[in-house]
């Protein structure tokens, strides 16, 4: 359909290719802007219909609720860019937060250095996922569907029917979640820092470029000499470490920690990633988009709660948003493909 439209315009070849290219680059570059515009429209809509929405206190609530999801969405985005999925992030959060904070509880003298415990546990989970997917060549959906249940089961076994109460933990844990630096919540600052660091890393570091290369064209990356398994493995480990960090924040915010924590988080994280314009076909999109996707979901949640809307609306909007985002993604991909074909025919791209 799109191709027909492109060829129906009777222009000299070069100009036609140029226009098609301009249109496609515009679409590619403005995918994040589209989500941002949607977010603004959403905010305006909620301000008009929900009395308490447009207030500083409410903006704070959205930011606090959204910041942990932002970290998880960043983690998920790294894996999705390599053309894989991680369905186990919810279980990793449960395992890392329960075991990690239990270590904190047992060693109150060690101090804030133990924030590394949940991060390390998350990293270990990432190693397991990475080994299975990258070196075991198991499709990521199957591997992480398996580890989804394995990590959750381990958390349950470790907890042995107990739960960790927030008041048994040293003060610095809860302090992390409620403290402010320069008037901004530490949680929000952490999320912003994660987005900035991961975003810059993916853009400028060698491993970041490799992650995009593997995702956008695995065959070309292999011919170029990239070791795909190693890059995918690294992506999963990074995803695990970040999820471990999110697990700490999750635990620090929750009043008590149970092995049932963060059930279904993987779906919300994937939704945020897809809505934020990261292509499920891999190789395109960035973590800033995923972060905006996460904030969008948090805003929808918040606005619907203020409106007293039912669970139906929330679930339906989330589901429909995923499908729409994926369809838009495929339309863009098809345009890129058509454009490349057009340019190749004119001998501009080898």
């Amino acid at each position: 359909m799109i191709r027909r439209r492109a060829s129906a315009v009777d222009l000299p070849g070069a100009e036609r290719a140029g226009r098609a290219m301009a249109r496609t680059t515009f679409l590619l570059e403005n995918r994040v802007l589209g989500v941002l515009a949607f977010l603004v429209l959403l905010a305006i809509f909620f301000s008009l219909v929900a009395a308490n929405f447009a207030a500083v206190a409410n903006a704070n609530t959205i930011a606090l609720n959204g910041s942990i999801l932002v970290v998880v969405a960043c983690a998920e985005a790294i894996v999705v860019i390599t053309r894989n999925y991680d369905l186990s992030v919810g279980s990793v959060v449960a395992l890392a937060s329960y075991v990690g904070l239990d270590l904190v509880r047992l060693h109150p003298g060690a101090g804030p250095i133990l924030v590394l415990a949940p991060i390390a546990i998350g990293g270990l989970c990432g190693v397991v996922n990475g080994l299975l997917v990258a070196y075991g060549r198991i499709p990521s959906v199957i591997a992480t569907l398996g580890t989804l249940s394995i990590f959750r089961g381990l958390a349950y076994l470790y907890a042995n029917g107990q739960q960790i109460n927030g008041k048994d933990l040293p003060d610095w844990v809860a302090g992390t979640a409620s403290s402010h630096v320069f008037g901004l919540s530490t949680l929000v600052l952490t999320a912003v820092a994660v987005v900035a660091l991961v975003g810059l890393g993916l853009r400028y570091l060698r491993v970041g470029r490799q992650i995009y290369a593997i995702g956008s064209n695995p065959a070309a990356a292999a011919f170029y000499g990239l070791k795909a398994p190693r890059v995918v493995f690294q992506a999963y480990v990074m995803c695990g470490l970040l999820t471990g960090l999110a697990a700490f924040l999750f635990g620090a915010r929750a009043g008590y920690i149970v092995p049932y924590l963060a059930q279904g988080l993987e779906l919300t994280a994937l939704a945020a990633v897809v809505i934020g314009g990261v292509s499920v076909l891999g190789g395109s999109g960035n973590v800033a988009g995923a972060a905006i996707g996460a904030v969008t979901l948090a805003t929808i949640d918040n606005g619907l709660v203020l409106l007293g809307a039912s669970d139906f609306t929330r679930q339906f909007i989330q589901g429909a948003a995923i499908v729409i985002a994926v369809v838009v993604d495929s339309v863009i991909q098809r345009r890129v493909r058509d454009l490349l074909k057009l340019m190749r025919r004119r001998g501009r791209v080898g």
Partner: peptide, 21 residues
Amino acid sequence: FGLPSLAVTLGMMGAYRAFAL
């Protein structure tokens, strides 16, 4: 649309459960 079935059915899953709700 030539979409990956996992992503599509992930979204539709939410929609079907929403209708059930």
